[in-house]
Design a protein around this nucleic acid. Structure first.
Length: 470
RNA sequence: GGCGGGGUAGCCAAGUGGUAAGGCAGGGCUCUGCAAAAGCUCUAUCGCCGGUUCGAUUCCGGCCCUCGCCUCCA
């Protein structure tokens, strides 16, 4: 068995074979956030999905080079910079820092490279120059540079690889912003936007005059710079397939920097969107959440993460508060089991048990069938609990099962280290034990209540009482 | 209208040509000073109608419903 993934280009699940001749190194790019505000949980579903892919590739032994960009120049950002009389850097730093904190909360592994668009202006200009030289880009009367779909197709390139669209039928709609009306064809898109008064201080010099990059060019420039002109995986939310990713392909392949016969990207993965309480997130419906909105309600990052990766990435997922509560219970079940295994194992070390790891791997190999992978985990939890109950869990087996879980959790990223109770609480617990022996149950219960008020609970187990965080 | 996802128990969600994983919630039992944890156990004819088949939830056709994209939204 080997890993296979759904490729948007072919619309099929294909065996994953990286470009690297040794089959080890994998280049992976994920479109990151536009830092105009705090990211919402819909955004994070995509980033957690990317994190799962990255972790699973590493679990499978690949050496991943993971790149995620930060888009720090864009219409909305520029507008807010103007409205708030601040600077671009000041404004975007605030939200990109918040974004990094949120990623950490969700226990996402930091990408190896996190390029900011504004740090790659020269690379973008080079790429646009190349497209100008090849005659695929042109300068419109408004001084902006546009990508010509027609010229691109004239070079024998295919526009519309990711999404089948009838470009003949396309009309210039309301959503086409005013500063783009001078382009030759509706489908053409901006590579470089000429400076306008509203841009304020946000502009860079270029061979075509002052201005700023278009939306798509940054990802082409940064991904090719950091991962090479052809790389293995490109991920993003499903809405990005068109136009963003389609245009990335056009720019990157239009520049013709790839080796003969190699595409810009081999596998395109798109994560489906999130509904919240069954509806599309919107501020007017009151179901619009940033990560902070949820952590403020005392849900932690692991719970949110678990819920987000409880269902297949290609299917719309209904994110609910009930679901979050369920995630909490489900994770407790796993943590409980891991704690008991740790106790049973003591200092014994062992290699990971193979059965659960194999089931888990088989599930994820199949286009990241994470639901099935969770089933393997929970089946394993029940099996372990049975053995713990009937005392057939010897230290070697416990250590081996625990190691298996730790291995699996390098992918899931939801395990929690057991928090040590403070000494004074342990004293209280011991006092309660004495009270119980003396049949002074009212004193014992009083101590239980006192501990509860401090956020801890006592569980009386066969091995004696145990303090647990509430 | 075009393209692409979906419709499986109260909720979330896998999966298969031979009568359906897992999680949450709920009921019962065991254990328990209390409590918790854990174990056992109960709860579904898989959107509708046809067709193919010995047999379909799974394949084919039609229909209904729902969601997303269709130019800067993950």
């Amino acid at each position: 068995m080997a890993l296979s993934l759904h490729n948007t280009i072919s619309r099929k699940v294909e065996p994953f074979i990286p470009f690297d001749p040794t089959g080890k190194k994998v280049g992976m790019y994920c479109c990151g956030p536009t830092v105009h505000d705090f990211a919402h949980i819909g955004n994070f579903r995509t980033f957690v999905f990317a994190d799962l892919v990255r972790r699973y590739l590493e679990f499978r032994g690949y050496q991943v080079n993971h790149v995620m960009n930060i888009t720090d120049v864009e219409d909305k950002i520029i507008r807010r910079v103007r409205e708030q009389s601040t600077t671009l850097a000041q404004y975007t730093t605030k939200y990109s820092n918040a974004f990094f904190e949120d990623l950490k909360t969700l226990n996402c592994v930091a990408p190896h490279h996190i390029p900011k668009a504004t740090d790659y202006i020269p690379e973008m200009i080079d790429l646009i120059s190349r497209l100008m030289e090849r005659g695929i880009a042109y300068q419109a009367p408004d001084q902006s540079i546009y990508f010509s779909i027609e010229k691109y197709q004239g070079c024998g390139c295919q526009y519309g690889q990711l999404v089948k669209l009838d470009f003949e039928e396309m009309r210039q709609g309301d959503r086409v912003s005013e500063d783009e009306y001078e382009k030759e064809c509706v489908a053409d898109f901006a590579l470089w936007k000429a400076r306008v008064p509203d841009d304020g201080e946000v502009y860079w010099p270029s061979p075509w005059g002052e201005g700023r990059p278009g939306w798509h060019i940054e990802c082409s420039a940064m991904s090719m710079k950091l991962l090479g002109t052809s790389f293995d995986l490109h991920l993003g939310g499903e809405d990005l397939a068109f136009p963003h990713h389609e245009d990335e392909i056009a720019q990157s392949e239009g520049a013709n920097l790839q080796e003969e016969g190699k595409p810009f990207v081999k596998y395109w993965l798109h994560g489906a969107h999130l509904l919240v309480e069954g509806k599309k997130m919107s501020k007017s419906l009151g179901n619009f959440f940033t990560l902070r909105d949820l952590t403020d309600q005392d849900y932690n990052g692991r719970e949110i993460r678990q819920l987000m990766i409880s269902a297949h990435y290609r299917e719309t997922f209904n994110f609910t508060l009930d679901g979050l509560a369920g995630a909490r219970t489900a994770l407790n079940r796993i943590n409980e089991c891991a704690t008991k295994l740790r106790e049973a194992a003591g200092n014994t070390q062992a290699n990971p048990a193979t059965e659960v790891v194999e089931k888990f791997t088989t599930a994820l190999d199949d286009n990241l069938n994470v639901s099935s992978a969770w089933a393997a985990v929970f089946d394993w939890v029940r099996d372990c609990n049975r053995k713990l109950v009937d005392n057939s869990m010897d230290p070697e087996t416990a250590a081996s099962e625990l190691a298996a879980w730790e291995h699996i959790d390098t992918v899931l990223g939801v395990g929690v280290d057991q928090e040590e109770a403070p000494a004074e609480l342990i004293e209280l617990m011991e006092e309660r034990t004495k009270a119980r022996k003396a049949k002074d149950f009212s004193r014992a219960d009083a101590i239980r209540e006192e501990l509860t008020s401090k956020g801890w609970t006592i569980e009386d187990t066969a091995e004696g009482p145990r303090l647990k965080r509430l």
